[in-house]
Every structure is written in structure tokens, then in C-alpha cells.
């Protein structure tokens, strides 16, 4: 009896006992939904009546569904654009912040971070009211100067004839509008992560680097960025996952649809639409499960990628 107790409290069993609470939740609220989703995706689309086994029919349908293809393509473009814009601008902002006047640094960091602290639903609301629209800031600042009697034309005697962009109705601009929102939301946070990572870099490394050069940018490029690589990788993974889980912004801006010509249709919005607009829960579940392998591959890449690189270089 005593041995048994020691085994679980202090001995070899203890780690498993202490992991139990987390993994109980993990199994109950993560594995079970997944298994349930698998079952759901193999049955016909009814929640109320007894549904029947249909095999891979939903998957087959999705493979031929042009809307699903569009959602995947949109989501990939959206993810790529977010990464390409956010990571470099955050690196640049972190670099500037590192060399900004010390007393304004916390204030500036907070200004950049505020969108990240704001619920995306509120961000979308503000985006609609402030940026978007004929009178909106984006049009007034960046488009209207190029209009027929805009400032740029007057100044340089040019003949641009720009019209205010209808960001959320014009299919060419829906995606840029969604990306802009993500950039607005995440850039500050990623910058903050970079700064925290930079704080962890030993000062002696900088001292050594500054013996060789006085060029701040060069030091940033050669010393800071390479050492920041794990942080960058983490942020990149997080951004990709967030992009594939993006819902609130698109839902607020496009009202649960994909927008004009489905130009803003993303994975989660489409599965939401399938489930709650059409009542096709099986199809929606199949959709989630079809994205899963891609996201798992991402994890694998994030774990194995750096090791592979290390093996090559070091």
C-alpha cells in the first residue's frame, strides 16, 4: 500500500499523475471533438434526425467545390501577405525602437501595441468607420490626392484620375483590406516579441560587434537578426495559425459571407457558412479536417526546419 502511494506521489508514476489534469482536458475538449468531427464528416448532413453513413462523400464534394478551392486559395494568399508585411515591418520597428529616444520608448511601444490589445471585432468596427468609405482616411490620404483635382495633380500638373476605392465592395480590394487589418493588429505585438528577444541577447556580443564597425544597421543585420531567428520562427508559426483561424474581422466586415465574388472568403468563414447558413455540419467538419494535415505539417516544419538548417551550417 505504501509502495503504491510512493510510486504515484514521488516515484516514476508522479509525472503521469501531474500531467493528468492537462491531458484530461486535452482529451475531453480537443481529441474528442476531433474524433466527433471525423465521425460527423463521414455522415450525412443532419443534426436532428438519425444521419446515415456516407463514407468520404463530403470530402469528394469538397474536392470539386470551387468555393472551397477559392477559400483555400484566399486563405493562402492572406497568410502569405500577412507574413510578408508583418515580419519585416516589425523588424524595422523594433530596430527603430531600439535606437529611439529612451524616454519615449515605452509610450511608442504602447501606441503600436494598442491595436493588438483591442478585440478584433472592435478593430473591424473602427476600420469600417475610419479607414474604409469614400470619406475614410485611406481614401482621403492615399487615393484622393491623385483624383482629378487632388493635391498631387495640382502640384505636379499630372492627370491622374483616381476615384475613391470602395474597399469592401470592390473584389480587388477586399483582400488588401483584410490584410491591412491583420497588419494593424499584429505588427505591434510581433515588434514587442522581437524587442523582448533582443533584450535576451548578451551585451558582450554587441560590444564585440561595435569594435569592428560603427554601422548600427549592419550590426542589426549581422548580429541581432540571426540571434532572433527562433523568435521570428515562433511569430511566423503563430501568424500562420492565426491566419487560418481568422474569423472575427472577416465576419464583421463582410457579414458572414465571402464578400463580392467571394473575394474575402476564408476557411473558417466558409465552414461557418456551411454549418450555420446551409446546415451542412458534415461538410463543415470535413473542411476542418482537411485543413488539419496542412497545419500539422507546419508544426513539423517548425520543429524540424531549424534542426535541418543547423545540420547544414554547423
Amino acid at each position: 500500500m505504501g509502495d503504491w502511494k510512493t510510486y504515484w506521489l514521488r516515484g516514476k508514476g508522479a509525472p503521469y499523475l501531474l500531467l493528468l489534469p492537462f491531458f484530461a482536458f486535452f482529451i475531453f475538449f480537443w481529441v474528442m471533438p476531433l474524433v466527433g468531427g471525423l465521425r460527423l464528416s463521414l455522415h450525412s448532413n443532419t443534426l436532428v434526425e438519425e444521419s446515415e453513413y456516407v463514407g468520404l462523400q463530403h470530402y469528394q464534394e469538397l474536392r470539386e467545390d470551387p468555393k472551397f478551392e477559392k477559400a483555400i486559395r484566399n486563405n493562402i494568399i492572406y497568410t502569405g501577405a500577412c507574413i510578408v508585411v508583418i515580419l519585416p515591418s516589425s523588424a524595422l520597428l523594433a530596430y527603430w525602437l531600439q535606437s529611439a529616444w529612451k524616454r519615449v520608448r515605452p509610450g511608442l511601444t504602447f501606441m503600436l501595441l494598442l491595436p493588438g490589445l483591442t478585440p478584433p471585432a472592435v478593430l473591424a468596427l473602427l476600420f469600417l468607420l475610419v479607414f474604409h468609405g469614400k470619406e475614410g482616411v485611406l481614401n482621403q490620404m492615399f487615393v484622393m490626392p491623385f483624383s482629378r483635382d487632388g493635391a498631387i495633380n495640382e502640384l505636379f500638373h499630372l492627370h491622374f484620375n483616381a476615384r475613391p476605392i470602395n474597399w469592401l465592395k470592390d473584389p480587388h480590394f477586399i483582400m488588401p483590406a483584410l490584410v491591412m487589418q491583420a497588419v494593424w493588429r499584429w505588427t505591434g505585438f510581433v515588434t514587442f516579441f522581437f524587442l523582448a528577444g533582443m533584450e535576451a541577447i548578451p551585451k558582450s556580443l554587441y560590444e564585440a560587434a561595435y569594435l569592428e564597425t560603427n554601422d548600427r544597421w549592419k550590426v542589426f543585420k549581422r548580429v541581432t537578426l540571426p540571434l532572433l531567428q527562433p523568435v521570428v520562427l515562433f511569430c511566423a508559426v503563430y501568424l500562420v495559425v492565426d491566419a487560418f483561424a481568422m474569423f472575427s474581422g472577416a465576419y464583421m466586415l463582410l457579414g458572414g459571407s465571402g464578400g463580392t465574388a467571394d473575394a474575402g472568403l476564408l476557411m473558417v468563414s466558409y465552414s461557418y457558412q456551411q454549418a450555420f447558413t446551409y446546415g451542412n455540419f458534415g461538410t463543415a467538419a470535413a473542411m476542418s479536417l482537411m485543413v488539419a494535415p496542412a497545419l500539422l505539417a507546419l508544426l513539423w516544419l517548425a520543429i524540424m526546419g531549424p534542426r535541418w538548417l543547423k545540420g547544414r551550417v554547423g
Binding site: F26, F29, W30, M32, P33, L34, G36, G37, L38, L40, L47, V237, Y238, V241, F244, A245, F247, M267, V268, S271, Y272, Q274, A275, F281, A284, A285, M287, S288, L289, V291, A292, L295, L296, L298, L299
Partner: peptide, 16 residues
Amino acid sequence: VIVLPQQALAIPLFSW
């Protein structure tokens, strides 16, 4: 769980 968050599995989670 990081790469497959609950939002990505929202519909299965809902039915569960």
C-alpha cells in the same frame, strides 16, 4: 494544439 487551435476545429467542437 498550437497549430490546430479550437477556432480551426470550431464546428466539430460545437457539435461535441
